[in-house]
Design a protein around this nucleic acid. Structure first.
Lengths: 152, 152
DNA sequence: TTCCTTTAGTTAGCTATCTAACTATATAAT
DNA sequence: ATTATATAGTTAGATAGCTAACTAAAGGAA
């Protein structure tokens, strides 16, 4: 009752990492959304980009899993994209519980525009910090992600 | 109009990094909040922890700057902490626009409890992945953060 | 002194995210 | 065939975050 033991946590590098992660994510999200066209959010762009890159047809559940968000969250994102005409929803052929999200012409176009809008930002960052820094960082992040994903 | 040029973006390591960042942040937030006591969110815990560690009195604006969130966001977080009795708000001595956020006894106590709740999680992660991985990652993240912060 | 600009905090209205709970369909077990 | 369990999608209600716009106070310039 006399003194507080102050040495409770020696500022674990793990907590520092989590903290830094949160701050970074904040900065990145706001900066990306500042330049994305048509009021696209980072999540909405992420889904469009994912669909173009993979070229594969996926259900909302598969998309949710790819981005590590809950199914209700992906429902929401897909509905926003649907309202903007960037995707269409078609029923799954063999499983009537499921749906298939297809990107539209407009979706492909806005994704292309978004890439053009992001390019200068990425270029500046690449010049200033070097792309290899990001390759290293990605490989570290992936290790942590895989662990968290498996031990959830 | 015939074929789409598919090589629009050679999947920049920078975008991969941003993407990985978002997914990680998702996982970390949900896992931290699953173990935090008293319905503390990651942000609320972050603020309490910050105040204990620095021991310095800060205004909402200074807290917002430390966590790179907007002032309205910090207003919200502080109000949640206030409602739970973990902080109190006192007027600033010389500047009557400003306020000072002070952590309460209850705030110190719940922060301490939170550390105990987080410890096993951090320990497991540290054993599995090694703390040095996180030290490396933090130093990389900080470089990027500083850049984004300065070129905003 | 008076006016202009900046800063602190808040309010309003939006999106993204979560969990809990619900419906419907599919699949396995009895 | 019936029942139980698991999965897909949605709805409801919560928090965190943003920008825009507002009030109040501080500080500098005319």
């Amino acid at each position: 009752m006399s003194e507080m033991p102050t040495a409770e946590t020696p500022e674990s590098p793990i907590y520092l990492f989590f903290n830094e992660l949160g701050i970074m994510e904040q900065l990145v999200t706001t900066q990306l959304e500042r330049v994305l066209p048509g009021g696209l959010t980072k999540s909405q762009f992420g889904v469009l980009n994912h669909m173009v890159r993979l070229g594969r047809l996926e259900s909302p559940a598969e998309l949710a899993s790819a981005f590590q968000v809950s199914r209700p969250t992906m429902t929401n994102t897909v509905q926003k994209l649907l309202a903007k005409g960037y995707v269409e929803i078609v029923p799954h052929a063999s499983d009537s519980r499921s749906k298939i999200v297809k990107i539209t012409e407009a979706g492909v176009a806005i994704r292309s525009e978004a890439l053009k809008a992001l390019a200068p930002l990425f270029e500046r960052i690449g010049i200033s910090l070097g792309e290899s820094l990001f390759e290293e960082a990605v490989s570290l992040l992936q290790k942590v992600r895989v662990y968290l994903d498996e031990n959830r």
